[in-house]
Design a protein around this nucleic acid. Structure first.
Lengths: 250, 250
DNA sequence: GCGATTTTGTGAATACCTTCACAAGGGCGT
DNA sequence: ACGCCCTTGTGAAGGTATTCACAAAATCGC
């Protein structure tokens, strides 16, 4: 009864992945990486309620995927399950944590303090998931120098120095679309290698930089497409056997 | 020099798509739909600056995809290009607009007025892209009754009536994770068929409802993974021919 | 101990997406 | 009119991701 699919989202360069030799985890598929974060959240939740072991079936349900997919995903990390029993919650949690590189408590810069930027600054999920906002940056002289959540708002002109001294690798970009590329370029020059872009623009970056985009308007438009399709279908099909209460205008 | 990839993100039920007979657009791949929104934005931008026709190559660059992919994507809509010339910007804009179902100016409900909810309420991209916030809902009695952007904040207990009278099909969910499923259930009962979920939870919904998820923590973790991989590689590889100035802590 | 039962890990099959590469079509200069 | 050049549209090939289905491993009851 419960339909579920999953997330996959990517930008950036990952050319010659396989055969990295040194590190153990070789070439985990992109789609799997995206789901590991979901599994991790489910596992942490279970750990908190005292669940010690979990089967692929129940973890899959919690994560909204099917169990074969989950097992295949986990198999890329190694063999951490016990046949006939399931997975040890804390062991698996640690493994995913490590695989995602969350042991490092990464420094994140928040660029752009509009409404969205402020909302993100207050987002508790940052700290609780291994990320630490180390710098907040804006271009508006009226707010540069004020403090947000204990951090001073710094000027975008000082980006280079900020990124270097705080050793920031990840930036969250919530600036207006018109200046996003320019700010992005500065970030890249300063040494940032991962960008989470909320501005509705396609960013051009060199191959060694990863960009992930969160695009509200696009998401809505995708929903709109499916909605449109659904209503079109409802019009021509006989009755639609489902039971859901529909709101049909007069 | 410019690496780019694209977005794909999905949840929800799309079982028996092909052979819908009535509607013309038969079975556009999910990945294509997700990109149409990007193309649309690029096209609108070009239209505003007075560009009349565009080749697949330049539109592809603007959208950050390769041109073969773009042409294949557009071919699902029909044959709107002219060989040797390119695409008429306004014609193509209209076609994508129509395909995405944006001609309808859909009513959207915003559920949850925390920091993020407020930020989204103020987001101009809504209106300019064919969406209209028709209702704002929260559970906190202290803010129910106040006005945000001209709209009264209504109580979540009245969801059912609100959705029906405003004929809302799309809801944006920015409530705390703990209550997301409950609110989601109410929305579904009321007749909402598309949900954009910002709460860090997997929502269980019946098959006829689409859910798309925006998950900040997951995005950061995915970036973290790649970043981790990058530094691991930098450690064992000889020199890395690139020129970017790296900030390496002492 | 041993068979019944459970659940993992994974080859093989399938479905989906991307990229390649080129023929077909259309304008433009002469 | 004609040939040249440009760009689309699309089969075919190559990847990537998902699902199936089953053997291998581990526990439990007896």
């Amino acid at each position: 009864m419960i339909a579920q699919r999953d997330q996959l989202n990517a930008v950036g360069g990952h050319a010659d992945e396989r055969s990295v030799a040194g590190t153990d985890q070789r070439s985990i598929p992109e789609a799997t990486v995206a789901r590991l974060a979901i599994y991790l959240r489910a596992l942490v939740g279970m750990g908190k309620v005292g669940v010690a072991t979990v089967s692929s079936g129940s973890l899959a349900t919690a994560a909204g995927v099917n169990s074969a997919k989950l097992r295949k995903d986990l198999s890329y990390l190694g063999s951490y399950g016990i046949r006939g029993v399931g997975y040890d919650v804390s062991l698996l949690t640690d493994q995913i944590h490590k695989t995602l590189g969350l042991h490092q408590n990464r420094a994140v810069a928040l660029i752009g303090l509009g409404h969205l930027g402020r909302a993100l600054a207050g987002y508790a999920g940052f700290a609780s998931r291994g990320f630490r906002i180390s710098a907040i940056v804006d271009a508006d002289p009226a707010i540069v120098g004020t403090r947000v959540r204990g951090l001073p708002v710094q000027h975008v002109d000082d980006l280079d120095a900020i990124v270097r001294t705080e050793n920031i690798a990840i930036a969250v970009l919530t600036v207006p679309a018109g200046v996003a590329q320019e700010v992005c370029d500065r970030l890249v020059v300063a040494g940032v290698t991962s960008i989470l872009n909320f501005a509705p623009t396609v960013l051009a970056v060199p191959a060694h930089v990863d960009v992930r985009k969160v695009d509200l308007a696009a998401e809505l438009q995708i929903l709109s497409f499916h909605d449109n399709r659904k209503s079109a279908r409802a019009d021509c099909e006989p009755a639609r056997s489902g039971s859901s209460t529909m709101a049909v205008g007069p």
